[in-house]
Design a protein around this nucleic acid. Structure first.
Length: 388
RNA sequence: GGUGGGGUACCGAAGUGGCCAACCGGGGCAGACUGUAAAUCUGCUGUCUCUGACUUCCUUGGUUCGAAUCCAAGCCCCACCA
């Protein structure tokens, strides 16, 4: 791109709401970052360790990914700050020049709960790799994210497990808010945005309080807002409740990101509530475990019934895997443990997710979101056969 | 032809008198997976009228209250020797 084009770009953090649905909270938008715009609603593939597993940056670009995730905790351990700094940051390191969002390590407070101790100022972790002990608080997390040079840095938070007591949740919210204040005032990479995270578990008043307190920081460097502590093992109604309890208390003119949500149907529901961004390991992890996603729901490609089925993973799909290979072949690759099998399904699943979001955006722009969602719901939730 | 070793469920392989429908691994089948300690994990895998019953451990016959396990014969496989 030319300098002129770069110069004319809106400043990082600019969020244009392009179209709002009349019947629901759904909207389309465009969020500008230091590495360009992302269209919302958007799905962000997860590349924890500087790679969306099995894919290279070129694949992601060809699939139409507009933004991917990296992880502060994991990248701090390996390759570590020194190497990352020497390599010019995450974009240059992995040859990806589109936007990157980095998770702060807050999720590891949850997922590595057996290897950490939470204090008022941060978290003492014991490395899952070699047992080395280290401290990560809001300052440490933001420093790592500054070095990574992500376009969107997440505030270091405490991702609350489910279920938990109200007292525990209140305490976690207090810490998350206190840490958020620290996060927004730490040094940043050029143009780097910072998003705060709403916690509160299943208590509406805690989520409201957290959302309002974060919103109050919007003029002090809080560029966007996320909903955390959902999809941490709770039943689906609680996932949707956590989102519903949070979104009404977040500003309409700022991006809203539901963290970790990645069920297609759940995302369409969340968009209806006004959510703009999502990330999830489901399409990539489940691909590695042999499951493909389609417009009609997921199904196991590894299943023996496809042994001689010459159809692609999904009929009518335009992804590189479906363009060339049969499910019989891919099933065989999975069956014998060939790495290409999981890569092909990963390509397909990411394509499926990105296409799902693109058609959703088109439907919103065409004032047809409700109809689109009705059809998607039918296909995803009530279609009787899997894989057809 | 001789000597030695061996034949166990789809495959490999434990078990050498009762706790054996038979450890374990592979394969097969099914399920789970939501800001990635995950190319991982879990369950099932003789038959049935399935909280019980029936038929199994090369074949046949025998010993024993009781046999995959002991004895005899036969068939087959492997190694070495001629």
């Amino acid at each position: 791109m030319t300098n002129a084009a770069t110069d004319n770009r809106p400043a990082p953090g600019t969020f244009e709401v392009l179209h709002e649905d009349r019947l629901t909270g759904a909207r389309t938008g465009r969020l500008w970052t230091a590495h360009g715009p992302i269209e919302t609603p958007q799905f962000m593939p997860v590349g924890t360790q500087a790679t969306v597993k099995t894919l290279e940056s070129r694949d992601l670009e060809e699939l139409g990914a507009q933004i991917i995730l990296g992880n502060t905790y994991h990248l701090m351990l390996r390759p570590g700050n020194e190497i990352m700094e020497a390599c010019g940051g995450l974009h240059q390191f992995m040859s990806w020049d589109k936007p990157i969002l980095t998770d702060s390590g807050g999720f590891q407070v949850f997922s590595l709960s057996g290897l950490r101790k939470i204090k008022d100022d941060g978290v003492y972790f014991q490395s899952h790799i070699d047992g080395q002990r280290f401290f990560m608080g809001p300052k440490e997390s933001m420093n790592v994210q500054r070095i990574l040079g992500s376009d969107i840095a997440m505030c270091f938070d405490e991702c609350i497990p489910y279920p938990c007591t109200e007292d525990y949740a209140r305490n976690a919210v207090d810490k998350t808010l206190k840490w958020a204040k620290t996060c927004i005032s730490e040094p940043r990479a050029p143009g780097q945005l910072v998003f705060g995270i709403v916690q509160g578990s299943e208590w509406a008043h805690l989520r409201q309080h957290c959302a309002q307190e974060l919103t109050a920081m919007r003029n002090d460097g809080m560029d966007g807002f996320a909903i955390g502590g959902v999809s941490v093992g709770e039943p689906e109604p609680f996932i949707l409740k956590g989102i519903a309890d949070s979104i009404p208390h977040l500003p309409r003119d700022r991006p809203r990101y539901v963290m970790g949500l990645g069920d297609l149907w759940q995302m369409s529901e969340a968009v209806g509530m006004g959510a703009d961004m999502f990330d999830c390991v489901i399409p990539t992890r489940n691909a590695r475990n042999g499951s493909a996603f389609t417009r009609r729901g997921p199904y196991p490609v590894k299943a023996g019934q496809w042994k001689t089925d010459l159809r692609p993973i999904e009929e009518g799909c335009a992804c590189p895997a479906c363009a060339t290979y049969s499910r019989a072949y891919i099933r065989h690759l999975l069956n014998v443990g060939e790495i290409l099998g999981v890569r092909l399904i990963t390509l397909h699943n990411i394509h499926c997710y990105l296409t799902f979001m693109r058609t959703m955006r088109e439907a919103i722009n065409a004032d047809a979101f409700t109809e689109w969602r009705k059809e998607a719901t039918y296909n995803l939730r009530t279609h009787p056969t899997r894989g057809q």
